[in-house]
Amino acid sequence: MVEVHLWSGLKRLTDGEITVAVEAATVGEMLDALTRAHPGLAPVIEVGVSAAIDGEIVNGRHVAIPPGAEVFLLQRLKGG
Protein backbone atom coordinates (compact mmCIF):
# COMPACT_ATOMS: atom_id res chain seq x y z
CA MET A 1 0.00 0.00 0.00
CA VAL A 2 1.12 3.55 -0.74
CA GLU A 3 -0.09 6.43 1.38
CA VAL A 4 -0.57 9.38 -0.94
CA HIS A 5 -0.69 12.82 0.65
CA LEU A 6 -3.03 15.10 -1.30
CA TRP A 7 -3.21 18.86 -1.12
CA SER A 8 -5.96 19.89 1.23
CA GLY A 9 -7.97 21.63 -1.49
CA LEU A 10 -8.73 18.17 -2.88
CA LYS A 11 -10.63 17.19 0.26
CA ARG A 12 -13.85 18.24 -1.44
CA LEU A 13 -13.26 15.53 -4.04
CA THR A 14 -12.22 12.75 -1.65
CA ASP A 15 -14.96 12.84 0.97
CA GLY A 16 -12.70 14.81 3.26
CA GLU A 17 -9.70 12.50 3.07
CA ILE A 18 -6.32 14.18 2.91
CA THR A 19 -4.30 10.97 2.63
CA VAL A 20 -5.43 8.12 0.47
CA ALA A 21 -3.98 4.61 0.64
CA VAL A 22 -3.78 2.83 -2.70
CA GLU A 23 -2.18 -0.31 -4.10
CA ALA A 24 0.49 0.86 -6.56
CA ALA A 25 4.07 0.16 -7.60
CA THR A 26 4.49 3.05 -10.01
CA VAL A 27 3.32 6.64 -10.30
CA GLY A 28 0.95 5.65 -13.09
CA GLU A 29 -0.62 2.90 -11.05
CA MET A 30 -0.96 5.30 -8.15
CA LEU A 31 -2.75 7.91 -10.26
CA ASP A 32 -5.10 5.32 -11.75
CA ALA A 33 -5.84 3.93 -8.33
CA LEU A 34 -6.56 7.40 -6.97
CA THR A 35 -9.02 8.02 -9.78
CA ARG A 36 -10.73 4.70 -9.14
CA ALA A 37 -10.98 5.41 -5.43
CA HIS A 38 -12.19 8.98 -5.93
CA PRO A 39 -13.54 9.64 -9.44
CA GLY A 40 -13.78 13.33 -8.56
CA LEU A 41 -9.99 13.49 -8.84
CA ALA A 42 -10.05 12.56 -12.53
CA PRO A 43 -10.11 16.14 -13.93
CA VAL A 44 -7.36 17.18 -11.52
CA ILE A 45 -5.09 14.36 -12.62
CA GLU A 46 -5.98 14.90 -16.25
CA VAL A 47 -4.82 18.55 -16.13
CA GLY A 48 -1.44 17.33 -14.93
CA VAL A 49 0.07 16.66 -11.57
CA SER A 50 3.52 15.89 -10.26
CA ALA A 51 4.37 13.43 -7.56
CA ALA A 52 7.04 13.78 -4.92
CA ILE A 53 8.49 10.43 -3.93
CA ASP A 54 10.71 10.68 -0.86
CA GLY A 55 11.28 14.34 -1.64
CA GLU A 56 12.02 14.01 -5.32
CA ILE A 57 9.55 15.61 -7.71
CA VAL A 58 8.85 13.29 -10.64
CA ASN A 59 6.63 13.59 -13.67
CA GLY A 60 6.82 10.18 -15.34
CA ARG A 61 4.09 7.59 -14.86
CA HIS A 62 6.71 4.89 -15.20
CA VAL A 63 8.63 5.94 -12.10
CA ALA A 64 8.63 3.22 -9.46
CA ILE A 65 7.40 3.86 -5.94
CA PRO A 66 9.58 1.99 -3.44
CA PRO A 67 7.82 0.25 -0.55
CA GLY A 68 7.32 2.63 2.36
CA ALA A 69 8.03 5.70 0.29
CA GLU A 70 6.53 9.05 1.30
CA VAL A 71 4.41 10.24 -1.61
CA PHE A 72 2.89 13.67 -2.15
CA LEU A 73 0.67 14.75 -4.98
CA LEU A 74 1.57 18.24 -6.24
CA GLN A 75 0.20 20.50 -8.92
CA ARG A 76 2.31 20.32 -12.07
CA LEU A 77 5.06 22.91 -11.81
CA LYS A 78 6.09 25.31 -14.53
CA GLY A 79 9.39 27.03 -15.02
CA GLY A 80 10.60 30.14 -16.76
Partner: peptide, 9 residues
Amino acid sequence: RSSYGPRYK
Protein backbone atom coordinates in the same frame (compact mmCIF):
# COMPACT_ATOMS: atom_id res chain seq x y z
CA ARG B 1 9.55 18.58 5.70
CA SER B 2 9.00 21.37 3.19
CA SER B 3 6.16 23.83 3.56
CA TYR B 4 4.53 22.23 0.51
CA GLY B 5 4.76 18.68 1.83
CA PRO B 6 7.65 16.50 0.67
CA ARG B 7 10.89 16.22 2.62
CA TYR B 8 13.95 17.93 1.19
CA LYS B 9 16.76 15.97 -0.32
